[in-house]
Design a protein around this nucleic acid. Structure first.
Lengths: 342, 342
DNA sequence: GTTAGCACTCTGTCTTAGCGAGTGCTAATA
DNA sequence: TATTAGCACTCGCTAAGACAGAGTGCTAAC
């Protein structure tokens, strides 16, 4: 177990390093408020903390820097839940103040505000659209060869898919098709649409529609595609401001990873509900070895539907970011629940 | 006027610099194929070309580097129209091979392929949606307070807007509203929708709908918003690969500009039809002073509707990029014309 | 007009020296 | 026994000097 004094030293070193990005030496530490013992004593404590794995040196005679274990301990035990200041709260609230109902816009705004407030990169995983239920489907012919299917979910999400029509298909029959689809599919989760079309709707279409076979497959295929959660980013370039990423190779691989989205998506979707912090190599992806990721889930009612996240250096302002995410995910959940839960 | 030999020297220097990113010296130049004269002669020619403003030195005893004027001359007079190689052509064609009809997906794919082929950043300005004409409008209630209006254009573009309903509005009246809107607004360019609603539709709604006033303004406002061209990017991080941007400050301001989109949008929308090259400080924005931007417009039928662009360092492979864009914009125009022109 | 030759210039790298910040250890102190 | 003052030592950083390499400009010869 760590002594009180060791805890104090550890805490001050991490706080200092988080704000200054410079290794902390015993002498500068001894001048801090709250320190009543000498630099020699601190050197001894530091040495012990290093032996225990909480601190590291960048070279033999440098000051100390927190290790991943140090950050982990700090996050788990030393973080005092910090109240948000008024400006931050107002800023966050502003997302909800506007009279916007489009979920996508709300999410985009959220991502931007989170990145602005933190100066890190924000990531928002949109709601799991494929679990939303169909409210209405409409088909609009585009030309002889193709038509658009517009899907509206019970949450107000709109998705449109273009699909091709069989040759010599009578466009006037599309209305009939739409009616049949609506009759059968309203209330069905989007992810099951494709299946239902093949299993239940195909039979019906067969009775009423001429060349139904090709139509069914073309329609079903168009639904199977990209009905997946979308990622939204804010402040992608904020990483460039961090001194630990003033290195072309590091920043290149990091930004490339962000641009690809796939790696981020995999990590984000794995996180459990509530607030979760993963530090450095705790992240599955080696590219994030110098980064920390803090995630918070949001819900509609009791059902968790998406994730908010902040990506920054391991030297992150954990306390502040956690407070922000906590506050925001609560409000976000409340808003969504009010809007979309009947 | 430049002599033939000067042209040759200028051309070889620029070609060499474009591929190696290193100042070109007289001795290395004298070893090139096609050079029958000595390095001393070349030095004299270089000196003259420098006096004329086509070349620059990075320091007194360095090799030569093309100036902006040099690049300009090169693009205007020295570029031999280079045929695309087979691989490139196949790659570009692949965008059109898939059975995708959604314009947005086609555009995203285009941006990605262009950036992959060039190793620069690609920018695609989507079609001017606000000039498209309304094909159909549908209104779907979301809850007591809001409803979604779905707009489909004659080009198959779908846009949806959420708008708020007046308190105690009877949801069943929405169908009536939709009918009136369709009757009156089909065929109207999106940009004129707001106006028409106020001027023509309001009167009609007044006769049929209860609390029409608030509804009209809420509906019209939702249309006035972001019906603007969208920008799509590919290879945003490709800039990091260029040696001229191995500098944190440069890359930060460049990537920030790209992330903001606004500056890029202004530049892209100003360019004239056809292929256009702007080099270094010819770009309005000072942040692009080390970049060249090549734009190509695309059309539906005879009407120019959008722009493809490649952003790279001034040391750009002009010939190749111009060929690619030329080829691609032609095919793109052909595809769009076929799909969307009745 | 072209070219060989040469002195000169500038960059980049390597080495050396010195400074400053910091550590670890020892011995004195409370 | 825990704390602290003192001191030798280490390492990174910077400036300065030396040197090689690439390139230029000029002159004189072809």
């Amino acid at each position: 177990m760590l002594t009180d004094r060791q805890l104090l030293v550890l805490q001050i070193i991490i706080d200092d390093f988080i704000s200054n990005a410079q290794p902390v030496g015993s002498r500068s530490l001894s001048k801090k408020e709250g320190i009543t013992f000498s630099s020699a004593t601190i050197r001894n404590e530091m040495s012990d903390l290093e032996d225990l794995g909480f601190l590291e040196k960048t070279h033999t005679s440098s000051g100390r820097v927190p290790s991943e274990k140090g950050y982990r301990y700090y996050v788990d035990h030393l973080l005092s839940p910090q109240a948000l200041n008024k400006d931050d709260r107002l800023m966050l609230k502003s997302v909800f103040a506007e009279r916007i109902y489009e979920l996508e816009n709300i999410i985009k705004n959220s991502a931007n505000i989170l990145s602005e407030l933190t100066n890190y990169t924000s990531i928002v995983l949109g709601p799991k659209v494929h679990e939303h239920k169909l409210r209405k489907i409409q088909i609009i012919p585009l030309n002889q060869e193709a038509a658009i299917a517009i899907i509206v979910t019970d949450t107000g999400h709109v998705e449109n898919k273009t699909f091709s029509l069989p040759p010599s298909f009578d466009i006037n029959e599309l209305e009939k098709v739409a009616n049949i689809l609506n009759e059968r599919l309203v209330g069905v989760p989007l992810i099951e649409l494709k299946d239902k079309i093949y299993k239940e709707v195909a039979v019906l279409l067969r009775q009423h529609i001429h060349s139904y076979g090709e139509l069914v497959s073309s329609l079903a295929d168009s639904f199977s595609g990209t009905i997946s959660e979308k990622l939204f980013f804010g402040g992608k370039t904020n990483m460039l401001k961090q001194p630990e990423f003033h290195d072309i190779d590091k920043i290149t691989s990091l930004l490339s990873m962000i641009e690809q989205e796939k790696g981020i998506y995999e990590i984000i979707t794995q996180n459990p509900s509530g607030i979760h912090v993963s530090i450095g190599r705790e992240n599955k992806n080696i590219i994030l070895k110098d980064c920390s990721l803090i995630t918070a889930t949001y819900s509609v009612g009791n059902e968790q539907v998406g994730t908010l996240a902040i990506l920054g250096p391991t030297r992150m302002e954990y306390s502040r970011v956690i407070s922000l995410l906590q506050f925001f995910s609560n409000d976000f959940t409340a808003l969504l629940t009010k809007l979309y839960q009947k």
